[in-house]
Amino acid sequence: MKEIELFPKTGNFAENKDVARELRINEIIPALKNHQVVILDFNKVDSATQSFLHALISDIIRKEGYEIIDRLNFKNCNDTIKKLITIVTDYMQEEEPTV
């Protein structure tokens, strides 16, 4: 299991998509490839943009398939962040599969 704290990288407003991409490529994907469960800890993160969350997780869902969502856990999310994450995971599951 790998736990990733977002606050030290994003501050209380998670909006920087470059940071999201770095987290995805350097921390989330390697852990998932290593068959670990990833916990994204949003402690102290008050708000986020849909674009940030899209940059953080959408490509993982697109490439690894919907089942990967079972190995991505989101911790300490407030209601707004929960809803934004759900929007992203929902539309990624409704997306056309890429060939």
Partner: peptide, 23 residues
């Protein structure tokens, strides 16, 4: 929603979902 200049794929790319302006 769902349309971005970066792709015709519904759902966008790894970086763009085409949702920002709709929001």
């Amino acid at each position: 929603p769902g349309i971005t200049g970066t792709t015709t794929n519904i759902g966008g790319t790894e970086f763009n979902a085409g949702a920002g302006l709709f929001f």
